[in-house]
Simulated assay, not measured.
Amino acid sequence: MAPKHQLDRLAIGLMVLFCSIWGVQQVAIKLANAGISPVWQAGLRSLGAAVLVFAWAWWRGVGLFSRDGTLWPGVLAGLLFAGEFGLLYWALEFTTASRGVIFLYTAPFMVALGAVWLLPQEHMRRAQWVGMALAFIGVLVLFGENLLRPSGMAWLGDLMIFAAAILWAATTLTVKATVLGRTAPEKTLLYQLVVSAAVLPGVAVLLGEPGVFAPTPVVWASLAFQTVVVAGASYLGWFWLIRHYPATRLSSFSFLTPVLGVVAGGVLLGEPLTLAVFVALGLVGLGIWLANRPAAR
């Protein structure tokens, strides 16, 4: 499929689906944390997903080992991916998830800023900046009060998650701006899964994590969901979208993820759904609409 300059119904539908999956992932991580330490969990997820994506690519006849100039960009993307998740999971030892969300979702702005230099064909209009800002305000409405209640070493965790956001944006830009953006999404994803599966267990050992310490059916089911649905299917779809659609427009949809994660927590875990949740959802939706509205002629 030829690259497109606007998001069509397929891209919008897939992004809403993926953001819903990534929101539910927050619940799955909480459930799996009861029996598997966080960085070990991320490493096991990458390892399992790498096996599945490799099998899928082999079945479809995707050429994974051809010399196509993707090796070093792929290794870079893999290291950025591993660093992002290593920092993200470790940071939650110091700060709260709700504070972390605010810093993590600065990433779409970094993608937009990086695109100014690396992706000049994806020029951001004023309405797009306003839309992204409005969506971010929606996230602040949901979680912003926690910014006013830091404790202990929260600043360190916040800084680590901000660094994870930079790595997340850098991964997206690396894929879009290099030959990875023109290769099969299976190969692009495998670079990241294989490198992170090799790196993250070592990070977990350095952090002194216990690994799998209390396995239960719920813990394994939560890990399986993260492996098959999140790191396998949804990430594969995400990199297919990055290959064919503007990264800046796709990134604006990521603001849906934390709000839908709170909704999923309310539905699946019985956590409270306050008025702020629905106000935030409305602001995020309006911001995404502004950011993706076609330019007036």
Rank of each mutant, 00 (worst) to 15 (best):
A112P: 12
V116I: 13
A115G: 08
E122I: 09
G131Q: 01
G138W: 04
F136N: 08
V111Y: 00
F109N: 09
Q128H: 13
W117D: 01
M110Q: 04
G131D: 00
M124F: 09
L113F: 14
V130D: 07
M124Y: 08
L134K: 09
Q121G: 11
H123M: 09
L119K: 10
P108V: 00
W129D: 06
A112W: 12
Q128G: 14
V111D: 01
G138P: 14
A127L: 11
A127D: 09
L118A: 05
H123N: 10
A115Q: 06
Q121P: 07
L118D: 01
I137M: 10
H123I: 07
L113H: 12
A115H: 09
R125V: 01
L119I: 07
M124V: 13
A112M: 13
E122R: 15
P120G: 05
V111H: 03
Q121C: 09
V130S: 09
V111M: 03
A127T: 04
G131C: 00
G138F: 11
A127Y: 04
M124S: 12
Q121N: 10
L113C: 12
M124R: 10
F136G: 12
R125M: 05
W117C: 06
E122D: 11
L119S: 07
A135M: 10
R125C: 03
Q121M: 10
F136I: 03
M132V: 06
R125S: 05
P108T: 00
L134D: 02
Q121F: 03
A127K: 13
M132H: 06
L119T: 02
A115K: 13
V116C: 10
W117F: 06
F136S: 12
P108A: 03
F136H: 11
